[in-house]
Design a protein around this nucleic acid. Structure first.
Lengths: 365, 365
DNA sequence: CTGTTAGCGCCTTCAC
DNA sequence: GTGAAGGCGCTAACAG
């Protein structure tokens, strides 16, 4: 049974029409085809269990109806960092709605060139890249080759590049502003450094809040991690030691990564610092990871699922040649206040700092 | 620039050889080609930035070098159930090692037929299916079409079907045995019912442990959830109420799902039951989800990443026509004892039950 | 050891 | 409204 594949021509012959007609009917180009003929073709196709051969179609049309998702590392999934998973869920759902499939492209390719070769060799019509890539050569190469690409949650140097991201500057501002409203003035910031766009931007927001509150910028101390590494306990331990060494000790920590924030919350008590009594913590992303910490972490939320969906939309537009008026799409962030933040003890009471109400409208630079 | 794609024939012409030669060189069939010619071809290909067109190759060879992963629901990722993510990480890594890509196939297709059409229409060379499918028609259809498929973490009716799974019966046994060794005799079991293979099997293991310990099977009470639904609080609340109504009340709960187990641990205190003082909990999977509960959950672990890897290996073998001697690959489970289990108060002391040491070698039926 | 040739299955611009 | 014909880029027999 099922000896050889049923082809378009088989359907045509069986229905007594030409291949063209069948192709037209099956691809919706049926404006110019007798309704009766359409019915017949459809019926025959169904009866024969005709299934178009995707590779043949792709060869003929130059389109695969597939989009690629570049993974910096397979562990992206297993860090218990649901950030990635939630964005992915949005991507998959939207892609499916558009009748597109998602091809996972692992950066664990032997080298970036072979990945580049596959991508531009017709594996997919376009790619989504989440997070700054470990293989720094790939992105510029794709952009230069004019291959459709959308950067998700990070900004490429080239402003021209399609991007979906959050307003990280605002996020940083929200976090710092919340703390300063509570009376905190000396802050420790844990972040991926200035190389990573969201690290840089969040820090900028934090500094804007400090300025606004009249807090000297030297009171904001920052420690950077290596974003190429997965979160690990050793680094967080070092960070804790670093915080302890600071004099005067900061009364609050802003940690730009959820997994590390949780580790932090777990480790601080063991060095005698109770959260939030002795030290407050603000985290980012606000997925369940934050909510389920002990104590539940105050966290800056971003609409992860929407980001995934928007990225797909943008990419498909680009693939179809439509250039959006604005290449960079920014989503707003919001603060989820939980139990990891409170006023510092014996510090300046809230309200004495010079600052405008947090709900004030702000302008993006 | 980059006007039109560089083709194989371009390389051939430029190198002064035939397309065949180029094809051979580029595909490793170079046993029969002068080393010098090879060098020349390779050099030209590199100079011209030649990149083979994947669709064309797929059309000619009938192979895509892609494997599909059928997702029952995009939410698979975002339930904070790292189970799926960890298996996926294994899959991706192994696939990449074999120079294969993973195509995500969402069950959110309009209907299972269109998914079937894509799959058998040459989108992928074979598929991995994790968890029993919501669309029950797809799997049998693929199997009947003799399309390469590997079932991961569930068993299809057809024993013939390639499967990678854990020894769930053993897992159930380990969980129950641990509790009974502690002195528990009345157990509540939360599971997906007998329809789901791992539910059925774990329950069988639990009952074997009960038998072995001389515990009457009526003392093991089970409540089934609907596996087609994502874990939700309402169900867990009902489950808690159900446990409370049982008389005599069980002293321990075995919950076959990690997310629900965590919810359980969170809700029980609110009805006056302390874990583990009043009631013990054993969970499954033992990912970070279990470890980070309050209290950390005793849990039955399975080698999730290895399962993913093994599934890929099995599928690729099948695709290449190699039929493994044993279609079903079972991984052993192990028990991670944490803080959610302890001896019941005022119950029979450990040791009085008739049972062999847990380390005893056991035979699979 | 290398070149010639004939598809792989579908799409699509043209005439009819 | 429908059919004929060429081509998408690569592979793999089969000669030579």
């Amino acid at each position: 049974m099922a000896s050889s594949r049923v082809r378009l021509s088989d359907v045509a012959r069986e229905a007594g029409v030409s291949p063209t007609t069948v192709s037209f009917v099956l691809n919706g180009r049926c404006d110019s085809i007798a309704p009766e003929t359409q019915q017949r073709v459809l019926a025959v196709a169904a009866r024969l269990h005709y299934r178009p051969h995707l590779a043949a179609r792709a060869l003929a049309t130059g389109r695969t109806r597939r989009i690629g998702l570049i993974l910096n590392q397979p562990e992206s999934f297993s860090t218990n960092d649901t950030y990635f998973s939630e964005v992915l869920a949005g991507i998959i759902r939207r892609a499916t709605e558009h009748d597109r499939n998602v091809l996972l492209l692992s950066a664990h390719y032997p080298d970036w060139r072979s990945l580049f070769t596959d991508i531009t060799g017709g594996a997919v019509d376009g790619v989504l890249q989440i997070s700054k890539f470990v293989l720094d050569e790939l992105t510029p190469a794709l952009i230069q080759a004019d291959f459709p690409i959308v950067c998700v949650s990070f900004k490429h140097e080239d402003d021209h590049c399609l991007t979906v991201d959050c307003d990280n500057e605002q996020g940083g501002y929200l976090a710092a502003r919340h703390l300063m409203d509570l009376g905190h003035q000396r802050l420790a910031v844990l972040y991926p450094g200035e190389e990573i766009s969201w690290g840089r931007e969040r820090m900028a927001g934090i500094q804007r809040a400090a300025e606004e509150a009249g807090v000297p910028s030297e009171w904001i101390c920052a420690l950077a991690w290596n974003e190429a590494q997965m979160p690990n306990k050793a680094w967080v331990l070092d960070a804790v030691a670093w915080v302890q060494r600071l004099a005067p000790r900061p009364t609050a920590i802003i940690c730009c990564d959820e997994v590390r924030a949780r580790m932090l919350a777990e480790m601080l008590p063991s060095v005698g610092l109770t959260v939030p009594a002795d030290i407050s913590i603000v985290s980012f992303n606000s997925t369940e990871t934050s909510a389920r910490c002990v104590p539940p972490l105050t966290s800056v939320r971003q609409p992860l699922c929407d980001i995934g969906r928007a990225a797909v939309d943008l990419l498909l537009d680009r693939i179809q040649g439509r250039t959006p008026e604005n290449p960079v799409l920014l989503f707003p962030m919001a603060l989820d206040v939980r139990q990891s933040t409170q006023a510092p003890r014996g510090e300046v009471a809230p309200g004495t700092l010079r600052s405008a109400p947090i709900s004030r409208t702000r302008t993006r630079l």
